[in-house]
Structure formats: structure tokens, C-alpha cells
Design a binder for these strands. Structure first.
Lengths: 213, 213
DNA sequence: ATGTGGTTCCATCAATTGATTGAATCGTAA
DNA sequence: TTACGATTCAATCAATTGATGGAACCACAT
């Protein structure tokens, strides 16, 4: 049933919505196994039975969170795509990196959950995924690096993945990295953006072909 | 007591050593909370009480794993540093990326645990860390991007962090990314290396200064 | 007020999990 | 062989955790 999720997404003030919001954050911070239903319920200020009443078992709530985030991300990607449509590659890259970085820093639980999904195994096999392959191919296409979303060359996929992962890394690693460079949050975000642009734009615009095996 | 760890490191065939080896992998795959002492014991083929006899409580074993990996990584960095000493920047970067990528792909649990350490919260506060700040500063210095390991400029720190994280991402994300690009392991690793060099070398060698706020 | 459907919480359960105890086992030196 | 320390395991405990049942509560139409 996507109806439960749709209702929660449309009415964030409802109990379903409040639980979903908190669950996104807690699952993002602690991962699936590190999160207990009691942690979420406590944060919302409700009993665990209320949580189960609305979302079923823990795994179902987690799937709802993944789906919720996947939808948000998809919407954001469409917005960015419209914004950059028709611009020269250099500008498309710069604007995309700025906006996506801004977006993920505003919603760090998205980056957190995506990285957890990539890297961490769950004891019970997880069925649902983040549509990362589709999103990645879409980004490649909207960047003008591939004609259509099918048949994106592997090296382009790798570059796009590398770029997205770089953003996620700076977002998820903020608690760890920011004390290292001793910057306030705003400056850290700006520096992340500039570093990302500085690093990744040349990778897509330079002509030298080093990617051949 | 570092003596227990030292013994395990010197004699990987000992029970302490076998447990440590398995623990590295399992903790890396499932994270701290996702790993149970029974999973480790089962894999080693022993009883959990034997595991506790050798390593104390779960958190102690995890700390030993972190310390173990930190030492391995430190040794590898020293090797790389010797290898690239005196070479021009371009070569230092290329060789470092090749070797570090090769190394992490050969020991993916190191990348896994580092990323878990960065990104995931543990319910009980973890005391020990990976000496990432020191390592990062060391890398910056050995790259010739800073005079000494103190006072590495923030933008250089960010670039180095970005580079290291990119490597970890390709390593940790292999199970997720490789099916997307449909490559065998060797080709995937080669393409990761080339992509990393292609992306990061220009970031350190080009003159354009985009990092200023 | 009365009933009804939807919601919430208290009490509780079963399974999992980290950890310990005490008995058995093994290697080895006397 | 015997004795002793080190190691291993079966059995067990207490705490945590996911999940449920049933009573209480609430809003609202009749």
C-alpha cells in the first residue's frame, strides 16, 4: 500500500507523517540495526504500539522511509533538470552541484540513508532500493553526457557516481570533517560546494581521455 | 592493553588472530549494531564464550578492530609516502591513487569500517577514532601541498578528504555499483582507478583558483 | 446519551543478544 | 603419570527489542 505513505507525505502533521519524519532522521543517523522502534517512538512522544499501529513492523516503516526519500530525491532531480535545461555543460555542472549540495545539506538524512543503503548490509535481505541506477542514468542524460538513459557508457556512469558520492561524503561526514577544518557550518558548506565544483567540473569538460583501459 | 592486539597481529593463526580477522570483515559488512558476537563466533567456528574469553566485551573487540585497521592503514601510508618521495606532483598523485585504490580493494573492510566510523552514529559513544585528521594532514604534506602536518589549509584538507572518500566510495559501493556498469571485478577496479585519477589529479595540478569564498 | 470507528497506551510475550559461570579439555612441564 | 595453567564449550542469565492484545479514550454522527 502506497496509500499510507501518500497520506503521510501529504499531511506531515498527522501522526503517520510525524512518525515518518522522525524515522527518516533516526534511521539515517543510526542505520537500520542501530535504530530501535522505541527510539523513534520516544522522539515522537508516543508509545511503540502506536507506531506499529500506523506503520506495521519495523521493516515496513524502513521501506516507507526509503520510498519517501526516493520520491523526494526524484522530485528534486526533476527541478534541477528543468533549471539547467539548455545551458552549456559548464553551467549545468556548476548549478547542479550547487543545488544538489545545498539540498543534501538541508536534508542530510537523505545522504545518510543512501550511503547506508550502498555500503551496509542488512541481516534480512532488503527488497526495495533507491532507484540509484535510474537516477544516475538520468543525471548523465540531463548533463548531456549520454543520448538516452539507456546505454550510458560505463566511464560516464562512474564519473556521475563519483560526483554524487563526493557530495554525500561531505554531507554525511560533516560531524567528522568540520572539526578537522574548524569552520562554521555555512563556511563548511560553501567550501564543500567549491571543492566539489573545483574537482568535478574539469573531469567532465577536459578533453584528455585517461579513462580508456 | 595493546598487548592482546599485538599478539593477534603477530600471529594471525592464533585464536585471537582468527577472531580479529573475522571480526574485521563482519563489523565492516554489517556495522557495529548490525553485527552480533554470535555471527563472528559462528564464522570462526567457536563458541561465543571463547570469543569473550579472548577479547572481552563486544565494544572492546570493536575497538581492537579499529585500532588494528588504523595501524595497517598507517603502515600502508608510510610505504606509499616512501614510494612517491621526490617525484613530481603529477606522478605522486597518480601513484598514490593507484596504490591506495589497489590496497583498499584488497582490504575492503578497511574502507567499510572507515565509512561506518565517519557516517554512522553508535548508540554508546565511541571513544577511539581512526586518526583520520592526522592521516589526512600527513597525506597533504607528503603530497607537497603543505609545509608541515600542522596548519594544512582547509581547502587542501577538503580536497584530500574528497579524494580519499572517493576511493572508499568505489570500494564500499562495489556490490551496488558494479552491477550497474556490468563489469567484472578487475575491469571495475581499473575503471575506478582511472576515473579517480582523471577526476582528482587536475584538482591538485590546475592553477585556476575556484576555492576562494 | 449512545454507539461507532479510529486512535492511543499499558501490560505483556517471545526471540534475540551480550555476557558469565562452571565443568570439561588440552598441552606441557615436573 | 600427575599437576597446573590456559583454553574451550554447554548451560544459563538478564537486558533489550520487535511485536501484540485488550482496555481506555476521543471525535462525531445519530
Amino acid at each position: 500500500m502506497a496509500s499510507a505513505l501518500e497520506k503521510a507525505r501529504k499531511d506531515p502533521e498527522s501522526m503517520k507523517g510525524k512518525i515518518l519524519t522522525v524515522a527518516r532522521r533516526i534511521f539515517g543517523e543510526y542505520g537500520f540495526h542501530g535504530t530501535t522502534t522505541r527510539m523513534i517512538a520516544l522522539e515522537v512522544g508516543i508509545d511503540i504500539s502506536t507506531l506499529h499501529y500506523h506503520w506495521g513492523e519495523k521493516g515496513d516503516l524502513y521501506e516507507a522511509v526509503v520510498l519517501d526519500i526516493s520520491k523526494d530525491l526524484g522530485q528534486e532531480l526533476i527541478k534541477v533538470e528543468k533549471r539547467i535545461h539548455g545551458l552549456p555543460l559548464q553551467d549545468r555542472l556548476a548549478i547542479s552541484i550547487d543545488r544538489m549540495t545545498e539540498y543534501f545539506f538541508a536534508h542530510p538524512e537523505i545522504s545518510n540513508l543512501i550511503l547506508f543503503r550502498y555500503f551496509g548490509k542488512t541481516r534480512e535481505e532488503a527488497g526495495l532500493d533507491f532507484k540509484v541506477p535510474e537516477f544516475t542514468a538520468d543525471i548523465a542524460r540531463s548533463m548531456g553526457l549520454a543520448k538516452d538513459r539507456q546505454n550510458v557508457p560505463p566511464d560516464v556512469m562512474m564519473k556521475v557516481l563519483g560526483m554524487m558520492n563526493s557530495i554525500h561524503s561531505f554531507v554525511c561526514g560533516e560531524n567528522f570533517f568540520r572539526p578537522m577544518v574548524n569552520l562554521d557550518r555555512g563556511t563548511y558548506i560553501d567550501m564543500a560546494k567549491n571543492t566539489l565544483k573545483f574537482i568535478h567540473i574539469p573531469a567532465f569538460t577536459q578533453n584528455t581521455d585517461l579513462t580508456g583501459a
